[in-house]
């Protein structure tokens, strides 16, 4: 992607300088923001603020997870709620039944979600393009059906988890830093992917899958690997989420809102850029917070859906597209 963005000539050199300047800006700004967030987490005793920021961090991780296959690979996953939910149910079922350490249970959640990704990905990602998108919608519905009917999930009654032995502030701080750390890890992973052979293979799949295959990219394997990676991330987040909310039930856990938010955050921020989720998640959550005081949650979802349509129609490259001055195609299968 990058070489195409650097035109030749005097004007091109100016462009290159600008690109370098922008690139140089990211590191100090990022470090500053990160330091600020760490300090805030240590100092602040504003529970609501820590909670809101924690949710934003969580969504950044989910959106980065989506970004691997969706942003770089161009394969739309409309079922992040399913991968998130499988993780959430894994820790909930484990935590409810056995005295297992939350860390182990969370690892199991990532594993379960990864296995689930293989079950979904192997049949659907051997096909080109849009079949995967429709399958992810169906899978979310099917998993919710399993959660409603399987004997170990207690159906629509849901599962309660034991409260952690911490004060409210300590609890908020714990999840704040856990999600902050995960956000950092996920962003670094996606940053490294963007610069790796794996990342280039994904972009090649997005830009022209036939050409990629001819050039020796093992497209099916690359796509499944990307889904697997995103699913493990989402499963871990889901696993931690159930310790945070302490009660999960099928309708809320597999709600389409999660999937919609993630897609909207990725596309608004800029799908296929490691910075995209860092921009998209706070913006969407801020809009959501403004809306939430004014309107019911369904109206909120309606507006988010409409925003997604508008962004896809008029600014499919998102904020990063504007910053980078990307013209023409970004999404191709």
């Amino acid at each position: 992607m990058r070489p195409a963005l650097e035109p030749a000539g005097a004007l091109g050199r100016l462009g290159q300088d600008l690109v370098r300047l922008r690139r140089r800006v990211w590191a100090p700004v990022g470090a500053l923001v990160l330091a600020g967030l760490v300090a805030l987490g240590l100092v602040s005793d504003d529970l609501a603020l820590l909670d809101s920021l924690g949710v934003i961090f969580m969504y950044v991780v989910l959106t980065q997870a989506w970004n691997v296959l969706g942003g770089y690979g161009g394969y739309m996953n409309f079922g992040m709620a399913a991968f998130f939910g499988v993780g959430a149910y894994t820790t909930a079922v484990i935590g409810h039944s056995w005295p297992v350490s939350p860390v182990l249970a969370t690892a199991a959640a990532g594993l379960a979600s990864g296995l689930f990704a293989l079950v979904v990905g192997i049949p659907t990602l051997r096909l080109r393009g849009a079949y995967f998108a429709i399958a992810t919608l169906i899978v979310t519905f099917a998993v919710e059906l399993v959660a409603l009917n399987a004997p170990f999930t207690q159906g629509s009654l849901g599962i309660y988890l034991k409260v952690l032995p911490l004060s409210p502030l300590q609890t908020e701080q714990l999840f704040y830093f856990v999600f902050l750390g995960l956000m950092l890890a996920a962003t670094v992973i996606v940053f490294l992917i963007e610069r790796s052979h794996f990342g280039w293979a994904l972009v090649a799949v997005r830009e022209d899958e036939n050409a990629a295959e001819v050039l020796g990219v093992r497209t099916t394997r690359v796509k499944i690997l990307a889904l697997l990676l995103g699913a493990v991330m989402a499963g871990i987040v889901g696993g931690i989420y159930s310790y945070r909310v302490l009660y999960i039930e099928p309708a809320g856990t597999f709600a389409i809102d999660t999937s919609l938010n993630v897609v909207l955050m990725a596309v608004l921020g800029g799908a296929g850029f490691w910075q995209g989720p860092l921009i998209g998640a706070p913006v969407v959550m801020a809009v959501g917070d403004v809306l939430r005081v004014a309107v019911a949650s369904e109206v909120n979802r309606l507006i988010f859906g409409a925003i997604l349509v508008a962004v896809a129609l008029f600014a499919p490259n998102g904020v990063m597209g504007f910053l980078r001055g990307v013209r023409g195609r970004r999404f191709t299968i």
Binding site: G129, A130, V263, A306, I307, V309, A312, L313, P316, T332
Partner: peptide, 11 residues
Amino acid sequence: PATIGILVLFG
């Protein structure tokens, strides 16, 4: 690209 159409339809 087809992906944008899918995003629109999902919305």
